[in-house]
Amino acid sequence: MAVLSRGDIEKIFTMEEAIQADKDALEFYSRGGSTVPLRTNIDVAEEKGQSLYMPAYVGGAKALGVKIVSVYPNNIEKGLTSVPATMVLLNPETGEVGALLDGTYLTQLRTGAVAGAATDILARKDAKVFALFGTGGQAESQLEAVLTVRNIEEVRVFDISKERTEDFVQRMGEKYAKKFNVKIMAVSNADEAIEHADIITAVTTAKKPVFNGKGVKKGAHINGVGSYTPDMQEIDEYILLHADKIYVDTRHGVLSESGDFIIPMEKNKFKEESITGELGEIIMGKVPSRDNDEEITFFKTVGSGVLDVVTSRRIYEKALENNAGQIIEF
């Protein structure tokens, strides 16, 4: 059994590979080639914690596994991460555990990659300006993914904390500015961030929209990443009502979990029929993609177990090829 840390994964698996893995995973899902049971949530009341189990199986990718994610807010007081995660990958032919992966990094990688996949498919080819809302744990992979699929010249970063924004911009500048020949800068308000922006990604925990949808320019592509509960709404309803095309990673996931959709639907402002399709349906040719450079496109992701198992399977295969990680036997 292989044990793969974040460092092991970073050495052998690129963002390009993660983006392709996510594209393949969502195509398998949209074709009906996966089994994704509802996640199991166990409350641990005495510790004020929760333990979540997210299984999935994708036959065409030979990918079977379960991601275990715990939410323990009090861990911060113990000097531990508040959301530890581990990915357990199984051999679908034998049922044996084949690998354990750093689930926290896997989540960051596949979440950045799915927005990167949507950007690659939907954003204008000549996109140059990228606006990023949020500087938390998911923000770096969102930045890297967009820089990977488009020749961005300027990144504008905005967060409600000026201190966090400036720290993030400094760290990302050191890591990516030279590599991608891009200027990464902090901005003081949301309007400044989206002005003439070709690509906009929101990855926040906001319960109110983080930018004014009326300020989005024609031809822009928007990724909504952060709203994963019914009471979270980081995307302006104006976007849902006026975007030319709207896509999701999975209909069931988005309509069950994301306040970006649930809130306007409860107000009878938005209907499920207004969703153009799943990203996997574009890949399989079932629904149209962007038709022209003037369309505003919007992609919403809440994540899915298919992304975890397919990406971890690809990582595991690369690890075997490169003799990466540690091998343990019971």
Rank of each mutant, 00 (worst) to 15 (best):
A2Q: 12
L4M: 05
S5K: 00
E10G: 02
T14F: 01
E16P: 06
D22T: 12
D24F: 13
F28S: 09
Y29K: 12
Y29C: 09
V36R: 07
I42W: 04
D43A: 15
A45P: 13
E47M: 15
V58S: 11
G60E: 01
L64E: 07
G65P: 06
I68W: 13
V69W: 11
V69A: 11
I76H: 05
I76V: 15
E77V: 06
T86D: 07
L89S: 00
T94Y: 01
G95R: 00
G98T: 09
L106V: 10
L109R: 11
G112P: 09
V114A: 06
A115V: 14
G116C: 02
A118R: 00
T119F: 01
I121T: 11
R124D: 00
K128G: 00
V129A: 01
F133L: 05
G134I: 08
V146W: 06
R150M: 05
I152R: 03
E154V: 12
V157T: 04
F158K: 00
F158Y: 15
D159C: 10
I160D: 09
E163Y: 01
Q170N: 12
Q170S: 08
R171I: 10
R171W: 02
M172E: 09
E174A: 14
Y176H: 08
A177F: 05
I184Q: 06
N189G: 03
T204M: 04
T204F: 09
K208R: 15
V210K: 11
N212D: 14
G213A: 14
G215S: 05
K218Y: 07
K218I: 05
G219Y: 07
A220Q: 03
I222A: 04
I222S: 05
D236F: 06
D249N: 11
H252R: 13
V254D: 11
E257W: 02
K269P: 13
F270D: 08
E273S: 15
I275K: 05
E278L: 03
D291R: 15
N292H: 04
I296H: 12
K300R: 14
R313G: 06
E321Q: 03
